[in-house]
Design a protein around this nucleic acid. Structure first.
Lengths: 344, 344
DNA sequence: CTGAAAGCGCTTACAG
DNA sequence: CTGAAAGCGCTTACAG
């Protein structure tokens, strides 16, 4: 078998009996090159499996076939032994689906951590440098809190950027990617009401995140529509939040008969705590989570959820990034996944 | 605020009143440059947040600060709506911990899918090209079946490569990364026996993977040591495998009183099926899984497991890749996580 | 239709 | 101690 050392265009040119210019033109499909020459060059390229040196192409101005996923990691989120932060079903759903979607469009996914303790100007400059040097063809930001502002400087420019679950200036060509959280909150609430529950509590959700606010908003709307009184026990998206909520609920005189949880993880925490402290109450309670984690089937009771279509999110985002069109907002659909936990 | 356009070394040189050569030498810490010159140049660099163009550096021979993670995806593994393949706790544990570990060493993680339908020579050539063009500083391979052979051509050379859970020629400087599966299998089995179980079955595991074979081997050893008869019901690492095993067990006359599952996911499938078909039997049964998924706490019953230390795996792998030492094998420790499912 | 030449932004012998 | 020049591997006006 031939030992395929990586060749350069000069060597390919020599083998094909043409100049480097011609090799390059064949690769970049210039017109005016006769089929015969093209064939000759192409067969040498195929034979030696020649691929142009990526860095050289980038240096010449061609963007690298790379999508960057910048994941903002807050305090403690780098801790891998829990269900929050980097290893939450939400982040994992985003990562794995973006890997596939990018791959389907011939791109690789580069994951870079943005740590809360980093200087914002530093971060902004790093991203800017990636774009200016054409190291990336597009960037996706995940988990940005509203307290960081560097993103607005970036979206002001014409960089192909998508921001998930965070409002940004929609100048430039920046894309807002949202899930249909208001509708999801409404749907979850309507579902519980339709199943006979009346005293519904909304639990958890980091209200600095748009998704949490919209999920709660949908809940409030639906409650009001039915003449019921909404009540929020907000917090964050973690298991601990569910645990704390369970304890607070048990200490109350009037207990809810159902809960809408801001995330599946919150529901897990709630369920686990109620299992220990008041299993009877747990099993009479209606519970629905958010995100549609693949683990919901394995809960006891199996957890109903509002499922986010991460595959669609990834496809739509990558596609918009690569083919910038007029749309600057994308709303990713959610669906109701009813399971035993929300049935009377 | 100054608008930080990305500058190049010529502009920095002009601003500092020196030549491009000197700027480069300051950046690369050449001796023979007097402190005074260094300070002058450094202050300009800091002021303008100058970073050398990565592609240009790569073209000159400096490896990019990127670790590539090549994830082999078999048939159906790109399907994101299940717990197998790309979205399994195992793969997710690897990905999220490698992102963090790479980041801690100043590198980014590039994830690239290797699809089973791709030509092996094509894959080999692509990886080779990444190394030859210095686009990556190291590569990690995950999920390679024993049927693919391109990896041996790659490890023969002096590329900084780590292969997880797959034996390779240890020529060159390739690293074998294994988890301590034999010991894990033994530990799981001993644990169940110590808790009074006797008729233990080993369920699942894709026997083309080293981890599955070693887990089973540890089980067999421990069983024999106690004069018990081992029995394997092998398959793969999926939920379906657990479901099928549950059905087969229920159809038998002599049923096991405990099972060692090749992965947590297999255990989930088993538990869910038994829950429906024979809940009493399920709750008398001893069950232990493998991997130490963060979701085990939320199972019913909470699932005992042999936990793999993915953070240690990521740290050790990245560190060896970046500082090649003499060691060519790494065994990642596992620990027993007993929960309710394995207690009588 | 084809090739020689310039240049992308660096780094590194080499000369002074 | 410092800078001019060559070259990494491409692509693209430009000349022929």
């Amino acid at each position: 078998m031939t030992d395929f050392k990586t060749l350069n265009s000069t060597q390919i040119a020599k083998l094909a009996g043409v100049s480097r210019s011609t090799v390059s033109k064949v690769i970049n499909n210039y017109p005016d090159i006769p089929e015969k020459t093209k064939d000759k060059v192409r067969s040498v390229i195929a034979e030696y499996r020649y691929t142009p040196n990526a860095s050289a192409q980038v240096l010449r101005g061609k963007p690298q076939a790379v999508i960057a996923l910048y994941v903002y990691a807050g305090v403690d989120e780098v801790n891998q032994d829990s269900l929050c932060g980097l290893s939450s079903p939400y982040v994992m759903g985003v990562i794995s689906n973006f890997v596939v979607a990018a791959n389907n469009r011939g791109h690789r996914l580069m994951i870079e951590l943005l740590r809360h303790e980093e200087d914002e100007q530093e971060i902004e400059h790093r991203v800017r440098e990636h774009f200016d040097s054409k190291s990336i063809a597009g960037a996706v930001f995940l988990g940005l809190p509203e307290t960081v502002s560097f993103i607005d400087n970036l979206t002001d420019e014409d960089f192909p950027i998508a921001v998930i679950d965070r409002e940004v200036n929609d100048h430039g060509m920046a894309l807002n990617i949202f899930t249909d959280d208001r509708y999801g909150g409404e749907m979850a609430t309507e579902h519980l009401i339709a199943n006979g529950f009346r005293h519904l509590l909304f639990i958890g959700g980091d209200m600095s995140k748009r998704s949490a606010r919209k999920r709660a908003e949908g809940y409030v709307q639906a409650m009001k529509k039915h003449g019921l009184t909404p009540e929020l026990l907000s917090g964050d998206f973690t298991e601990q939040c569910g645990t704390a909520a369970a304890e607070r609920i048990l200490a109350r005189d009037s207990k809810p008969d159902a809960v809408v949880c801001a995330s599946d993880i919150v529901a897990y925490g709630l369920i686990r705590t109620l299992q220990k402290l008041d299993n009877d109450y747990l099993h009479k309670m209606g519970i629905i989570g958010f995100d549609g984690s693949v683990h919901n089937d394995f809960q006891s009771p199996p957890l109903s959820s509002v499922k986010v279509d991460f595959a669609a999110m990834a496809r739509a985002t990558i596609s918009s990034l690569l083919n910038p069109d007029s749309e600057t907002d994308r709303v990713i659909p959610v669906t109701l996944e009813p399971r035993a936990s929300s049935l009377r």
